[in-house]
Design a protein around this nucleic acid. Structure first.
Length: 286
DNA sequence: CGGTACGCCTGAAGGC
DNA sequence: TGCCTTCAGGCGTACC
C-alpha cells in the first residue's frame, strides 16, 4: 500500500515524465472522489487542471501536489489502493477497472496520459486554487515529513505524550508519511516497543528512531516501494522492498535477529508485529 | 488528552 | 471448482 516511499517514487517519476506538459483534456468518471467530505458543488474539469501547464510536483507525507502555472493545484492521496498510471505516447493500455480520472497531456517528452486508479476508494483528489490554500487547508495540519524530520523536532513533538509509539508515529499530525508497514519496521530496527509511551524516549533513542526511520524510507524509495498485494508503481512495476521486511507480515515467524517467536496484536487499530526480546517495553519506574 | 469503535470499499486469500 | 467469509488499512468522526 502506498506510504511515503511509494508516493516519493511516484513524484520523482512524474517530475521526469510530465513536468512542463500541458493538460488538454480531463475525464472524470467518478466525481465522488473529488474533494471527498466536502458537500460543495462538484468540481469542474478546470479545477482538475484542464488547460494548465504543469510547473511543479511536490510531496508531503503521503500526499502529492501537482501545480500548474496559474497556481491551481491538484492534491492526490492514494489511500490504500490508489495508483497513478503514466501512459507512454506509443503505448495502448486498456482502461483498468476503477479508473476514476484521466488527464490527457500535450508536450510531455514521452507520456501522453495519466490515470488515477483506486479500487477501494480510500484515496481522493483535492482541488485547490493556490499553494496557500493547499497549506492552510491540508499540509499545515501534517507534522514534518518523515524523510527530512530531525531528532530535535521529533523529540519536541513526542515529549509529554503518554500514547504509545505505534499510535504516535501513525498519526500524520505528529510526523507525516508513515503507515503500518514502515512504523513496524522502524520500531523493530530501532529496538523500541510499539507501546512504549512516546514521551519516555531518551535523546539517544530518539536519535536512533530517526536514523532508522529515514534509513528505511530511503532504502524503500531506492527499491521502488513495498508491494503488498496490490501496489504497483506508475509504470506498473512492483516494488522490491517487501522482501526486506523484518516484522511486517511475519507474524508467527521467528525474529531475524534473536530467533524468538514474533508477537502480534492489534495496537492502535492496526495489526502490529514486534519482537518482545529485541523491543522490550521499558516500564516507568515507580 | 488518548483510546476505542465504526464506516467507507474491493479484491485477495483461505476455508469448506 | 466455486461459493462464502475474513481480512487488509488511511482517515475522519463519534464517543467514553
Amino acid at each position: 500500500m502506498p506510504e511515503l516511499p511509494e508516493v516519493e517514487h511516484l513524484c520523482r517519476h512524474l517530475r521526469s515524465s510530465i513536468q512542463d506538459a500541458t493538460i488538454t483534456e480531463v475525464h472524470l468518471r467518478r466525481p465522488g472522489i473529488v474533494n471527498p467530505g466536502e458537500k460543495r458543488s462538484r468540481a469542474s474539469s478546470r479545477d482538475l487542471l484542464l488547460d494548465g501547464t504543469i510547473c511543479n510536483l511536490e510531496r508531503k507525507g503521503k500526499q502529492l501536489a501537482i501545480e500548474v502555472e496559474d497556481g491551481r493545484i491538484l492534491c492526490i492521496h492514494l489511500g490504500m489502493s490508489g495508483r497513478v498510471q503514466v501512459i507512454k505516447r506509443n503505448e495502448s493500455v486498456d482502461l483498468e477497472p476503477h479508473t476514476h480520472c484521466t488527464w490527457l497531456l500535450h508536450g510531455a517528452p514521452e507520456a501522453r496520459e495519466i490515470r488515477f486508479v483506486d479500487p477501494r476508494r480510500f484515496g481522493g483528489l483535492w482541488t485547490l486554487c493556490s499553494r496557500e490554500k493547499l497549506l492552510s487547508t491540508r499540509w499545515d495540519q501534517l507534522g514534518p515529513d518523515a524523510l527530512i524530520v530531525n531528532p530535535d523536532i521529533l523529540a519536541r513533538r513526542l515529549s509529554g505524550r503518554s500514547r504509545g509509539l505505534k499510535s504516535a508515529l501513525l498519526d500524520q499530525g505528529v510526523v507525516a508519511g508513515l503507515g503500518n508497514i514502515y512504523v513496524d519496521e522502524t520500531l523493530f530496527r530501532a529496538g523500541l516497543n510499539p507501546r512504549q509511551p512516546a514521551g519516555t524516549l531518551k535523546p539517544d533513542e530518539i536519535q536512533c528512531l530517526v536514523t532508522e526511520m529515514v534509513g528505511i524510507l530511503q532504502e524503500a524509495i531506492r527499491m521502488g516501494g513495498s508491494t503488498i498485494r496490490t501496489w504497483l508503481d506508475s509504470s506498473g512495476k512492483k516494488g522490491d522492498f517487501a522482501s526486506t521486511h523484518r516484522v511486517y507480515g511475519r507474524s508467527g515467524c521467528l525474529c531475524v535477529s534473536c530467533g524468538q517467536l514474533l508477537k502480534d496484536k492489534i495496537i492502535a487499530q492496526r495489526q502490529t508485529v514486534w519482537c518482545s526480546k529485541c523491543q522490550p517495553l521499558r516500564r516507568r519506574r515507580r
